[in-house]
């Protein structure tokens, strides 16, 4: 049995809204320890993963291992229909195996229940790298304010939706996007006096090409946290992470492009 309390605008809802146009199904694994959501876009260019430990989820109840595929559009449409003041609970029970129920209870105790079919999402689950892998295989990381990161992603995506590059050295971080009529180039210098807001940590310079559209899609999710951390590798997907609550986190992986 699973009971997942949700609030309009919480990280779970935010991630679902963000990936609405990229993916049809979110694969969710729940255990007594917490929730792990994973969604892959239909073109297999990006993955988003949300980890939410039970202690960060007030009212979370799960007494067994549950692995389900949630139809993203149905869930988002239902949440959008609810009122901001409603208490929302996602339920998966033994008696209604194969379906999930989304219950909305207003402050006056009026209720609306949505019931929809679960989706088979076994093929959409990938074994993602752990922190040890990121430390050993990635040549650099950059910590920066999430609002700033979103602004850049929006700018890159508006300018050129197909081709962007992130480069990092121990002195600066640069973003580049190629548009049809021109290019955009953004540079951040590492400030020696303050590394709490912006910090570059590289073993060797890294240059990574990617599609800015995907990064822009996820960037709004990262504003749930004050800061984001980018992990860059010459041979692996770009990974962006932000922390949610005490021990929760959101990660997105964007597959690179091989430069001509």
């Amino acid at each position: 049995m699973l009971e997942l309390p949700l609030v309009k605008g919480d990280p779970f809802h935010h991630v679902m809204e963000a990936i609405l146009d990229l993916s049809d199904v979110a694969h969710v694994v729940c255990t007594t320890r917490g929730l792990n959501l994973l969604a892959v876009d239909t073109k297999h260019l990006a993955i988003v993963s949300l980890l939410f430990p039970a202690e960060d989820f007030k009212g979370y109840t799960c007494d067994e291992y549950i692995s389900i595929g949630i139809p993203i559009r149905d869930l988002v449409n239902a949440i959008r229909c609810g009122d901001d003041k409603d208490t929302i609970t996602l339920k998966v029970g033994e008696e209604n195996f194969g379906t999930i129920t989304l219950s909305f209870v207003s402050p006056e105790k009026n209720t609306v229940d949505y019931e929809f079919r679960l989706v088979d999402a076994k093929l959409e689950r990938f074994r993602l790298p752990d922190r040890h892998f990121l430390r050993s295989k990635y040549q650099g990381s950059v910590k920066m304010p999430s609002v700033e990161f979103r602004r850049i992603c929006k700018c890159l995506s508006n300018f050129g939706d197909e081709y962007g590059v992130i480069s990092v050295t121990d002195e600066d971080l640069t973003y580049f996007a190629k548009g049809t009529d021109g290019d955009v180039y953004v540079e951040y210098k590492q400030q020696e006096e303050d590394t709490t807001i912006f910090k570059i940590d590289v073993r060797e310079p890294v240059r990574l090409a990617f599609n800015p559209k995907y990064l822009n899609t996820f960037a709004k999710v990262f504003t749930l946290s004050g800061q984001v951390k980018l992990f860059l590798s010459k041979t692996h997907p770009l990974m962006v992470e932000c922390k949610i609550g005490q021990k929760g986190r959101i990660r997105c992986f964007v597959a690179p492009k091989v430069e001509p």
């Binding site: 260019l45 990938f126 190629k178 992986f253 492009k257 091989v258």
Partner: peptide, 14 residues
């Protein structure tokens, strides 16, 4: 503008 790689080339199904 480069050849787009798939995420499947990096991560195996769980």
């Amino acid at each position: 503008s480069g050849v787009q790689l798939s995420i499947k080339e990096f991560y195996r199904p769980d």
